[in-house]
């Protein structure tokens, strides 16, 4: 079982969460009014997908039903920090 530490609920089985993509710089949503088709396509389909530390957005759908950001190592699944969306618990 892979555990993911929710900032509200503590460590839980990863099956309780939904992955919501890369967060921060890598996952920033361009302004739909001004983005070119190339920029929009890059946002939708092209991801950094690093082998190493990745900043990601997760949703704890089977628990607190809150979004949070996690820094996860994609090789080891180690999580070194989490930040609750809309303020820390």
């Amino acid at each position: 079982m892979m555990l993911l530490p929710c900032p509200w609920c503590g460590p839980r089985s990863a099956t309780e969460f939904r992955f919501c993509g890369e967060a921060g710089e890598a996952g920033a949503r361009p302004d739909p009014a001004t983005a070119t088709p190339e920029q929009w396509r890059r946002y939708l389909y092209l991801h950094a997908n690093p082998r190493g530390w990745s900043t990601e957005s997760w949703y704890h759908g089977s628990g607190c039903r809150r979004y949070f950001t996690a820094e996860r190592h994609t090789l080891t699944n180690e999580v070194r920090s989490t930040t609750a969306a809309g303020g820390a618990p």
Partner: peptide
């Protein structure tokens, strides 16, 4: 009190 899955049900 907590919310989790029991028999896969939230």
């Amino acid at each position: 009190a907590l919310r989790t899955t029991v028999a896969r049900v939230v």
